[in-house]
Amino acid sequence: MAGAWANQIIQGILLGGLYAMFAIGLSLSVGIMRFVNIAHGDLIVLVSFLLLTLTTRLGVPLLVATAIVVPVAFVGGYLLQRLLLQRVLGQGVLSIVLVTFGLSVIIQNALQGIYGADTRLIQGGGIETETIQLAGGINIGMLPLAIFVFAVALVFALDLLLYRTRLGARIRAVSDDVASANLVGLRSAHIYAVAMGIVGVTVALSAGFMSVWTNFDPTSGPSRLLVAFEAVVLGGLGSLWGTLAGGIIVGIAQSLGAQVDAGWQLLAGHLVFLAVFLIRPQGLFPK
């Protein structure tokens, strides 16, 4: 019995890796541009469908398809920020919520119109069935493990990018004070757009992982957004390592909830989020 719980905790941590992947991009946009993109989850699902088309229609292997999609997502993120979001950034919260909300509804319904409402899963070429046996009857899936390791590596890399590079310093400068940045000659709109391009890259990577691990359909976006949001808030707004921790907490909570009763998985995640939020509204690792 104790073994079953230990197993659930380990599975929960691994699930947290996927959730952290969803959340990293949201954490960046919250930390840098200080807005929550309501369409974040829908963008992940959108890229997943792109991957679906590339792999099933055109027969491209998933890894290659992801490699194709990542630069596209960078450009997509850049243009989204430059052409749409930048225009409403100065207008206050309501405008940015409404625009990304409208985008969310458009993406969901466009996907439904194009692909239908069916639930999908992409074949990963064998990795999804491989497991490692541990003592005590615990099985670790290769795919979840790989995703977890990748999520940690991505947080590490983005942390370096933001805090150890010149580009990172420029991004943080604009995030500190847009008006000052403009006064001294930084191109803040361009820098924001580059940041959103980076968010796009994380969206594409998490889409690649999600599409082989979990089922998705055109309306899956909001649930991904909520999980990502919870991870970001739990971790502390703007902290990437915190976001990783937040993702793991939600993952463990869901996994343990599912152990009690399969129907409690989602609710357990939300309830633990609310409980931790009430105790530490500033998050675990506030900046």
Binding site: A169, R172, A173, A179, A181, V184, L186
Partner: peptide, 20 residues
């Protein structure tokens, strides 16, 4: 002054170099 408060002195100065 309008410095970037969360950036280090060196980073603040370097931004001047980059834009100039």
């Amino acid at each position: 002054r309008r410095l970037f408060p969360s950036l280090s002195v060196e980073e603040n100065l370097h931004i001047g170099w980059e834009v100039g």
